[in-house]
Design a protein around this nucleic acid. Structure first.
Lengths: 214, 214
DNA sequence: TCATTTGATGAAGGATTCTTCAGGTTCGGA
DNA sequence: TCCGAACCTGAAGAATCCTTCATCAAATGA
């Protein structure tokens, strides 16, 4: 592969029959499992195919190359998480600030924990080609969602600025990542969830107060 | 390489003459540059050696394998950062809580920004073999340092518990990571630094209050 | 039923990478 | 000056890995 090759990320073919749908899903799932058991460094298209119970050729029928497979899995996961957070944000509209934050944070934690293995596996992939750009997009989308929610808060006049929201979201994601990588017990997760709510609430309150004061 | 090979991480030979010291440093620096320009996926021992202006053989005289090189660079960086934070924590002993947090957070941000390129480059490596264990060690060390500092705070009776400190530190690191990956302007960094101080201060205050109340 | 489309196979080509080692060069002290 | 130790070189072996494609199997629907 040349140093500056432009790689395609779009799927090569979309399943039309039922069996191929099963195959494609098996491949995604296998990619995650291989990522967990062997690490990104030793993730091989052959190994993924083998784990999925198909041959390499089949894999290449749906993904033009290795990266596109990993990208697809990452995108799918991140999209799921933001979608969940967005739903929570909508249902929390017009409530008091503290409650908003609580619902948002809890939705985030729960979404991540729902398939904790996927989250952990994909941290290894996020830094790869395509990852940063994708994450940037997802971050912006989350930011806007939270911003829109905060503007409807019943107990504050002006919401914190964009920057503060970015900080909060990245802090929340970072703490969650660190937590997930320890393979936490359910009790630990519950505690962390509570603490994350507190973290975000107290920061948002402080940031709002500061904003008003200026 | 067999699937479950045990790889050595200890350096193979330590420099004794001046020229080899230069060489070893050139290799570390080259590793970072290659990481930034080509990404972890396409980091090659040959490429690193070439960038360092030496031959591959030379590289293997000091590092038994590719991973040990990356591990060494990562360890060196993380150790530098914690050492800086530790120093700040010591000098902040017996001050009020808010001031402690400020000094600690600012030291952390400054240490990271001092060689922002290294930080960004190494995020790609952290997930690799050896990385997680190393990070765990570093995290514990930081936690203990901050905990010891907080116990001397002049304006609170009982410091937040370990768990809260872990959350704060990982949140801070996560936010910093997200920031660094955007290639921020100096102005942005200043703003973020201020916001991170606020984030940690407000959370620690809230966590302390909660702890007392119980 | 049967032609056409869709799906699956896996050996093999082509390329890359890690690591070694035999042989040469430079340094430092005696 | 001279010798041994430290240092450097880079071609080449051995091991993977990515990706393709000719070929076979299954499903669809007319």
């Amino acid at each position: 592969m040349p140093a500056d090759a432009i790689v395609a990320f779009v799927p090569r073919k979309t399943p039309v029959q039922a069996r191929s749908t099963v195959t494609v899903e098996a491949i995604s799932e296998a990619a995650i499992q291989v990522l967990l058991s062997h690490g990104a460094e030793r993730l091989t298209t052959t190994r993924v195919a083998q784990r999925a119970g198909v041959s390499v050729g089949t894999l290449y029928q749906y993904y033009p190359n290795k990266q596109s497979l990993l990208f697809a899995v990452l995108e799918n996961h991140l999209t799921n998480v933001v979608a969940t957070v967005e739903a929570a944000c909508e249902s929390a509209c017009r409530k008091p600030l503290a409650e908003m934050i609580r619902e948002m944070v809890e939705a985030f934690v729960d979404a991540k924990m729902d398939r904790a293995d996927i989250s952990v596996a994909l941290y290894q992939v996020a830094a790869d080609v395509g990852g940063p750009a994708l994450i940037k997009r997802i971050n912006q989308r989350s930011r806007k969602t939270v911003e829109a929610m905060l503007e409807t808060a019943s107990d504050i006049t002006s919401p914190p600025d964009k920057f503060a929201i970015d900080i909060m979201l990245s802090a929340m994601a970072g703490a969650m990542r660190s937590l997930l990588e320890t393979g936490p017990s359910p009790a630990t997760v519950r505690k962390a969830r509570e603490q994350l709510v507190l973290l975000c609430q107290s920061y948002m309150t402080a940031a709002t107060a500061t904003a008003k004061r200026v």
